[in-house]
């Protein structure tokens, strides 16, 4: 038994090491490219350690106002998108746990909304947004709503899982006590859903922060961050693209480190 336990422990260590390496390598390369001269990035054999350090790329991307503007806009868009997705996701999950027909409809809609490739939706969508005046606005509200729609299925399914874990008796008891449905939802369900709500919010936020296809088409002049990075990357500016990438990754990293226990909750099953 203890022999086997040791073997498992070694496996655990090896897996952890693997996870760390695959996570660190891209980040390291990003940092290296952001702070080394371009010629270093084109050398053969590739240099793992830069020969010349420079702040030129960072200076280049911060010298125009673009970066600050898109950073703020990305944060706004992601916040609005995450709030909307979480709110609508909660409503949908609630309706779906209470009613079999609602569940069927909900699932059909969630699945259908994820079927079409981005291009097929984005083009007609641009036309619709221009008509209603939500296309390419400085606040990025139109894009935020689209991001919310994209994040809604994941948020709803996460919350559906959380609703299912709440025992029905709790609601029945409250109902017998004369509480209204709304009171039950707000007083009984919501407190139990705290972690799932946080997880849904964080995941929706990240998916919006990350999204560049719709951003590219729907916010052509008032850009969010990913299209800005894309633009530098497409035009072969390795250094500047890496510098921007670092800037956009840093805040998310902080959020994750702070909130990781919400995503990975307290351990339960002793699987290993």
């Amino acid at each position: 038994m203890s022999q086997r336990f040791k073997l498992l422990e070694i496996c655990r260590r090896a897996l952890s090491a693997f996870a760390v390496v695959t996570a660190v390598v891209p980040i390291y390369l990003l940092i290296k490219q952001a702070f080394s001269v371009e010629l270093d990035s084109f050398a053969w054999p590739p240099r793992w350690i830069p020969h010349h350090l420079t702040l030129e790329h960072l200076h280049k991307v911060t010298s125009t106002g673009e970066l600050r503007e898109s950073l703020i806009r990305s944060a706004e868009v992601a916040t609005v998108a995450a709030c909307t997705a979480t709110l609508l996701g909660t409503m949908l999950a609630y309706a779906m746990t209470r009613d079999l027909r609602a569940r069927r409809w909900g699932l059909a809609a969630l699945t259908a909304s994820r079927l079409l490739p981005m291009i097929a939706v984005a083009l007609p969508l641009a036309t619709v947004l221009i008509r209603v005046g939500l296309y390419d606005t400085p606040s990025g509200l139109g894009l935020a709503l689209v991001h919310a729609a994209i994040a809604l299925p994941v948020a709803a399914i996460l919350l559906l899982g959380a609703f299912a874990k709440i025992p029905l008796e709790l609601e029945d008891a409250a109902f017998l006590d004369g509480a209204s449905q709304l009171t039950i939802l707000l007083r009984i369900y919501l407190p139990q859903l705290k972690q799932a709500l946080a997880a849904a919010f964080v995941l929706s936020f990240l998916s919006s922060w990350d999204e560049f296809g719709f951003g590219l088409l729907l916010q052509p002049t008032n850009r969010t961050l990913p299209p800005l990075i894309y633009y530098y990357a497409v035009f072969g500016d390795v250094g500047a693209a890496s510098a921007l990438a670092l800037v956009s990754t840093a805040p998310v990293l902080i959020v994750l480190v702070a909130l990781r226990h919400i995503l990975i909750r307290q351990p339960k099953p002793p699987a290993f």
């Binding site: 036309t127 221009i130 008509r131 390419d136 002049t221």
Partner: peptide, 13 residues
């Protein structure tokens, strides 16, 4: 594509 979007929608930036 932006040009087409503007032309289709009847207004744009």
């Amino acid at each position: 594509h932006l040009l087409f979007a503007q032309s289709r929608a009847g207004r744009g930036p």
